[in-house]
Amino acid sequence: MTAPSLLTQAAGSRRKGARITRRNVVAAALFLAPTVVLIVVLRIVPTVSAVADSTRSGLPGSLAAPEFVGVDVFTKMFSSASFWNSVTQTLVFNVIVNPLQILLALALAVLLTRNIPGRGLWRTLIFLPAAVPLAGSTIVWGIALRPDGPVNGFLELFGLPAQPWFTSPDQVIMSLIILASWIGIGYWMMFLIAGLNDIPPVYYEAARIDGAGALRTFFSVTLPMLRRPLLFVLVADTVANFVLFAPVQILTGGGPEGRSNFLMYDIFHRSYELSDPYQASAELVVLLVIMIAIVAVQFKLLGSDDTGEE
């Protein structure tokens, strides 16, 4: 082969390579097009419009177009006691409910990956509440925790007084935690069981040979190997509980005394029942910033290998 023909061949394969690259880009764009449209319509448009709405204000119920007021709505919101009450109650609920659910889910996942009879059945029974749609479980617990309901009947068996549950400012958060955990624990347990099953048995062998006890094995093998699933579950649970809506709307309406007036519900309530969409939009921006921050932290902690090519 002469030199010129080698050159043309190289140029030819370069051209061919460029053609393949271009064809791949076109194909990828076609395959991704519906998803990209959905992201724009369902995520970017509402985020932008939430931010835009939060910079405008007008008189409640007025037909005149709202005016641009910059950060005035935020300034007013940050000095409003009811906003800080919503933030506080949302945080109190989340600081308790998320670690509690994940700890119990982890304990159950460890228990139900042990060699005990019928463990598949026990897993299924604990997971079952997750299949009940949230509005349904809300109603079941709303009735079960009524003053004359079966839970108080159960307490009575032990001579304990009937509790007010959802109707008491001091117990409403606890009642919501019971409801959310009945659903959440089994659901997240499934993720953790999958994570536990992914741990190569050879690590447990090694721990056994080293004479490590059950506790030592748990803290030096199980927990470190379970870092990724645990983190995923903790973040996913937190994000879900931050926007918990149906139980509040159906059972408490934010009360009693605003104790369950979580941000998500307050935004809804302000938009539709108090016709104060301006502060609602500002609160929504706060909620979105929190959500995006949590998701970004998770992405960061899970490491860049999740975005890797192969």
Binding site: V45, L288, G308
Partner: peptide, 28 residues
């Protein structure tokens, strides 16, 4: 399909859907 910027697109897709839908339901 191999194409340049694939991992960036993947990150955008996953990140944008990880924010729970309820959070943007009202403006949407």
């Amino acid at each position: 399909i191999p194409f340049r910027g694939r991992s960036v697109v993947f990150t955008i897709v996953v990140l944008s859907f990880l924010v729970p839908f309820e959070a943007i339901a009202i403006p949407l």
